[in-house]
């Protein structure tokens, strides 16, 4: 019976189908069963001797089978093609990739940007000014007359025309106050110069000056702002302490220490076994300074602070030789990518 044969054929076909594993097998299978001279075609031919009813029934069945095979072959083909792509031999992926290298911003520049960002958040404006200064702005207007022993605190570079290289960014206090009317909040980053050179001192280094003048700004506010700065810079858990100090242009004057971040305040070489690191000097603006810029001390008071960028960078990055910053060796610079 031909109907039985067809049933048998079906099971043969699907059994063989399951074993197809490559595109060539797939092609052979296609030709063998559904090609123009394929098995199914030959069966269709055999149908012509049957009754009309059987012809109709089995013809339909065979055509359906052909369609099924085609559908499943398409699926199978996709599966095989997918697998084929994985069959390629794996490359030596232990080789390094084709890199494109980014440069880096100098660590001191990064610290300056970071600190400027912190104070900008507090509404301080960034101002800049000349690095070659007059003694008046650098000293005299800051209540450091020429006979004052405090001038010893800052070994000064003199220029042949009588100007000097600014020894600190504090002249920016004077320049800003003369230019503007209070209230004001500024920070002034920049290069400063002192005739000093060893592992801890560089003849050129960077500072940021800060100044706030307002009607009610007080010593406790100074503590608040500087504490905020310390925690933003060195982490929320940073301990701070305030010690009385002396700067001719502030009164009261203060120095801020942070708990040594190297030894966790246990005492180490960097903090001279005190557990504390000196970070900055600050104070309430001295009335003589306000006098120099014609601000009425009955109305205005304020605070100022100055901090050394190299020192902060050295503490933050654990660097013990300041000269590394100015030698600019590539290996050093690459660490700050």
């Amino acid at each position: 019976m031909i109907a039985d044969e067809i049933e048998k054929l079906k099971s043969e076909i699907w059994q063989e189908f399951e074993n197809i594993d490559s595109l060539s097998e797939l092609n052979n299978f296609r030709i063998k069963y559904i090609g123009k001279k394929g098995v199914i075609t030959s069966y269709l031919k055999k149908l012509k001797d049957l009754t009309l009813e059987e012809k109709k029934r089995l013809g339909k069945e065979l055509n359906q089978l052909k369609a099924d095979i085609e559908t499943r072959l398409k699926q199978k083909e996709k599966e095989i093609l997918f697998k084929e792509e994985d069959k390629e031999v794996g490359l030596d992926l232990t080789l390094p990739g084709r890199r494109v290298f980014l440069g880096a911003i100098h660590p001191l520049s990064q610290i300056i940007d970071e600190l400027c960002a912190i104070f900008s958040r507090l509404g301080f404006e960034i101002v800049t000014g000349p690095e070659i200064e007059t003694e008046y702005y650098n000293f005299t207007a800051l209540n450091i007359p020429d006979w004052h022993p405090a001038r010893d605190m800052q070994a000064t570079f003199y220029l042949k025309n009588g100007a000097i290289l600014r020894t600190h960014t504090s002249p920016m206090q004077i320049r800003t106050m003369l230019e503007r009317v209070p209230p004001l909040r500024i920070i002034a980053p920049g290069k400063v110069y002192r005739c000093d050179a060893d592992v801890r001192h560089s003849p050129m280094f960077h500072q940021i000056e800060g100044l706030m003048v307002d009607r009610e700004v007080s010593f406790s506010d100074l503590k608040g702002i500087l504490t905020y700065f310390a925690k933003e810079t060195f982490g929320e858990k940073t301990k701070v302490r305030f010690r009385p100090s002396y700067f001719p242009f502030t009164e009261p004057s203060v120095e801020m220490d942070i708990g040594c971040v190297i030894c966790n305040s246990k005492g180490c070489r960097v903090c001279s076994y005190t557990g504390w690191l000196e970070i900055l000097g600050a104070g309430m603006v001295h009335p003589e300074v306000f006098k120099a810029v014609n601000y009425d001390t009955e109305i205005w008071q304020g605070f100022a602070f100055g901090l050394g960028i190299e020192r902060i960078a050295m503490i933050k990055y654990g660097i013990d030789d300041i000269r590394l910053f100015f030698e600019n060796h590539l290996y050093f610079l690459e660490s700050f990518k």
């Binding site: 960034i126 406790s220 608040g224 504490t227 905020y228 305030f242």
Partner: peptide, 19 residues
């Protein structure tokens, strides 16, 4: 100095864009 409180200044909220 340590016994003096830590406060934040009261000021007008205003700042110019960076130079």
């Amino acid at each position: 100095y340590e016994k003096i409180p830590t406060t934040y200044p009261k000021a007008v909220l205003y700042a110019k864009a960076p130079l």
